[in-house]
Simulated assay, not measured.
Amino acid sequence: SELAFGLENEGRLPEEIQRRVADTVEALHLQELQRRSIFSLSGGQKQLLAFGSVYAMGPEVFVLDEPTANLDQDAIARLHDQIACLKHQGRTVVIAEHRLYFLTDLIDRALYLRDGVLEHTFNREQFCGLTEQEREELGLRTLTPAACTLPAVAPAGTKEGLSVEGLTCAYRKEPAVFQGLSFSARPGEVVSITGPNGVGKTTLSRCLCGLIREQAGQIRLDGRHLNRKERQKAAFCVMQDVNHQLFSDSVWGECRMSTPDAPDSTVEEVLDSLHLLPFRERHPMSLSGGQKQRLAVATALLSEKPILIFDEPTSGLDYARMVEVSGVIRNLAQQGRIVLVVTHDREFMQRSCDRVLRL
């Protein structure tokens, strides 16, 4: 229905709509998403579906805003091939993006914006020829695919920290997303949770936070079993779509909801560390995507809960802000928190995490 929606609004004939939807499913390899409720899809699957709904309409100009924000490595490779196909068809493609490595063989020009001003225009050779120092000074992410060489997550059973033992979870009335999952995470450790889109990473984070009920297994903190309500008190999750957890009418008010009794100096220090202090009176919904992401991180910092879970914390972030969030997460671990990070971002993973759980 989503793929057909735009074509229906243009008043296309039913036969043409059916043909175009079928062609889109075939071209973009969306067979596994057919007949699924869009509300049961993961963030990355929704991203692919959104691209498909535009592709089906066949526009001359495609404008993509952070298209890889929630995509796994295979989906990014597919997106690369789809963009190459659009170029071959003679379409114009404009992409606003921070992850750059998958674009180096596709771009014809790179336009560099700072504070609303076009500062540089590069051709492909100039852009791909930037040195590491030049790239970092411009605040750009890596131009080459990052490798992840982290050791695997520790087995369950630890008496110190978080122990997940034989966990089985389902999303609403769907079949079990994963079964018998076991691992542990110690205080001072940053554990990355990664895997293909739709494999259950967000479901796992919601269960650990007590937002959904487990079907089997148990979750322990320092050897003590935590029921769902106890997990809600012990864990804080920064969601993949942070719009779902910003409620106040100001940045300052948002922080105060997390820590009503902390001194103003503490809130100021946290906001300043994330370059948000100048926006203290701004409405959260007026911030950019990256600023909203950092505000949600600030509320997690101020919550002082022992278990912190970040779901795709670098979506929409440039190199400098990614480094900042990496520093914040490492600092939280050094304070003795248990930190779990759901991410596909290998550059960030390698910089910030100690171990990896691959679902």
Rank of each mutant, 00 (worst) to 15 (best):
G44M: 01
Q245S: 05
N123C: 15
G180D: 15
E2M: 08
Q82L: 07
I307F: 04
M239E: 06
P263A: 01
D318A: 04
T131Q: 03
D81I: 04
R321G: 01
S42H: 04
D264A: 15
I95Y: 01
C128Q: 09
E304I: 00
R330H: 11
G290Y: 07
A152D: 15
V238S: 05
L143F: 05
V25Y: 01
E119K: 13
L79E: 02
A56K: 01
L7W: 03
A300R: 07
Q335H: 12
F183K: 01
A300H: 03
I17L: 02
L140F: 08
I95F: 04
T24E: 07
Q215C: 14
D81T: 08
G210R: 04
H344N: 10
T259D: 14
K229S: 14
E137I: 00
F178R: 08
I38M: 00
V191C: 14
S1M: 11
T149G: 00
T168V: 02
G223N: 06
T92Y: 14
A176D: 14
M239K: 07
C209L: 07
F5E: 11
F178L: 10
G11W: 11
A154D: 10
A75V: 03
S303H: 05
F127R: 06
F51Y: 06
T131R: 04
N331E: 15
R20A: 03
Q335M: 13
A156F: 01
Q31Y: 12
S163T: 11
Q47K: 09
P284V: 10
T203P: 03
T24M: 06
M57V: 05
K159E: 15
H80C: 08
R256S: 00
R135F: 03
A22E: 14
G327I: 09
Q126V: 05
V251A: 06
L86S: 05
D311T: 09
F39L: 04
D311S: 11
E137T: 07
G210H: 08
V93Y: 13
S192H: 01
A333E: 05
R346V: 03
R231F: 11
L3H: 07
R12M: 13
Y112V: 11
R206G: 02
L140Q: 10
L138A: 09
R172T: 10
D115Y: 13
D354L: 06
A147G: 08
H120T: 09
C85Q: 13
H120W: 10
L13Q: 12
H244Y: 12
R256L: 00
V356D: 00
H283C: 08
E119N: 10
L208Y: 08
